[in-house]
Structure formats: structure tokens, C-alpha cells
């Protein structure tokens, strides 16, 4: 069963009056529980496609249906609430808030839910335990290694139990062994916790971990 359905999706940017097409007439589906790798050279539109699926950018044409919700026509506020509920985002550069501890960073998305403090605490501790950083929850990002920061970012992404986990080059800023740890963690989230994952990467070793791989080139999917 498809959890993401993309139909005739196009995206262009405008530089003055010049239209720069990034994605051209893309249609495909992502099955629930899939671990999809999106590959392609720089400028091929991988991140743009990921952003569109995550609802942080709007297409020029086409539709995106995620878990039964057509997101391209949603307004800003409903879309923000939808992201909070359905999307877990892992960035290449972790993007933790430096003034918050690991525990507080992971708790951040839960503030948008109506969970009481006690339950939030349980969720946060569980997420940090899953990524193996329960003992570092009171550390600030600057006190963690790159790999640890990315694991905290993954904990933040999964703490709300989202429908879809999207990762943009999650190993792009890590050394080989840290990257390996992150990929193992993503595999585990997919296999053990049945998370649907869409991962953008141009690292073939990372792509090998995905169940399926799609290639983007000059805005077209192959």
C-alpha cells in the first residue's frame, strides 16, 4: 500500500524572468514501510523532491498525497500542524538548537502536541534510548560528536512517531564510522519500528542500505 503518491509533479525556480525547471513531470509511489534511497548528481533535484514530500516547499504543478492527505493545496498553518504530526526530518547538518540539551532538543517537536510533561519525558527518554544516547541527554550539542549530534537529530525526528521519516544526506557530514552507525540506526528504525524512510544521498554505500533506490537526473526520475 502506497503511503506517498506523487502525480505529475513539477517544480521550477525563477531567476528574474528566467524559469529554471528542477523537477519535471514526476510520478511515483512510496510503499508503507519502504526504505527509499533517492540518488542523483548535485542539482538533480533530490533535495527539492524531499522538501516537497515533507511539505516544506510547494510544487509548481502536480499533487503529493501522503497518508491520504493531499498536501500541495494546504495553507501554511495547517501544513505546519501536519508536518508536526506526520513528518520526521533528518538534516545533513543535524540542525540541533545549540542552547538546548539533547533531551530538550528531542522534546521540541512534542511541545506542539498536547502530551503532558510526564509523557513527553517518557517519549524523549525512549527516543534517546533507541538512538543509544540515553546517557548523554543532558549534554549540549557542542559537547557531542558529529555522529552523536546526528543521532540526537534522529531521536528528535522519531519522537513524535511520524508517518514518514525523511533524511537529507544524513551521513553527508560524518566520518565513515559515524556514517555507518547512522545507517545502521536508520535500518533498525525501518525494520524494527516499521518506519517509512525516504533518504536523499549521493553516497552509493548509503544507498545500498535502502530497500529501493530511485535516481534523479536533470529533474527526471529513472
Amino acid at each position: 500500500m502506497a503511503i506517498v503518491s506523487i502525480r505529475k509533479l513539477s517544480k521550477s525556480y525563477w531567476r528574474d524572468s528566467l524559469e529554471i525547471p528542477v523537477l519535471r513531470d514526476i510520478s511515483f509511489e512510496i510503499a508503507e514501510g519502504d526504505f527509499l534511497g533517492l540518488m542523483g548528481p548535485s542539482g538533480s533535484g533530490k533535495t527539492t523532491l524531499l522538501n516537497l514530500i515533507a511539505g516544506i516547499d510547494k510544487p509548481t504543478a502536480g499533487t503529493i498525497d501522503v497518508a491520504g492527505t493531499e498536501i500541495t493545496t494546504m495553507g501554511e498553518s495547517p501544513l505546519a500542524a501536519w508536518r508536526a504530526r506526520h513528518i520526521g526530518f533528518v538534516f545533513q547538518f543535524y540542525n540541533l538548537l545549540p542552547v538546548l540539551t539533547a533531551r530538550e532538543n528531542v522534546e521540541l517537536p512534542l511541545l506542539l502536541s498536547k502530551l503532558p510533561k510526564k509523557e513527553r519525558k517518557e517519549h524523549v527518554e525512549f527516543a534517546l534510548k533507541v538512538v543509544g544516547l540515553a546517557d548523554r541527554m543532558h549534554h549540549y550539542p557542542k559537547q557531542l560528536s558529529g555522529g552523536q549530534e546526528q543521532r540526537v537529530a534522529i531521536a528528535r525526528a522519531i519522537v513524535t512517531d511520524p508517518t514518514l521519516l525523511v533524511a537529507d544526506e544524513p551521513t553527508g557530514d560524518l566520518d565513515k564510522s559515524s556514517a555507518e552507525e547512522i545507517l545502521k540506526l536508520l535500518e533498525r528504525l525501518n525494520s524494527e519500528f516499521k518506519k517509512t524512510i525516504v533518504m536523499v544521498t549521493h553516497d552509493p554505500r548509503a544507498a545500498e542500505r535502502a530497500h529501493s533506490v530511485r535516481h534523479l537526473d536533470k529533474g527526471e526520475l529513472s
Binding site: 515533507a54 516544506i56 501554511e76 498553518s77 505546519a80 500542524a81 501536519w82 508536518r83 508536526a84 504530526r85 513528518i87 526530518f89 538534516f91 540542525n95 538548537l97 521540541l108 517537536p109 506542539l112 528528535r156
Partner: peptide, 16 residues
């Protein structure tokens, strides 16, 4: 500006 973008990605609204 980047941090605010991250927070909005997580679901924080313009009001937040």
C-alpha cells in the same frame, strides 16, 4: 534564520 526554518520544519507555526 536557519534555526527558525528548522523549527518551522518541525511543525512550529509562524505564530510560534
Amino acid at each position: 534564520i536557519g534555526e527558525y526554518a528548522v523549527m518551522r520544519t518541525l511543525g512550529f507555526s509562524a505564530k510560534n
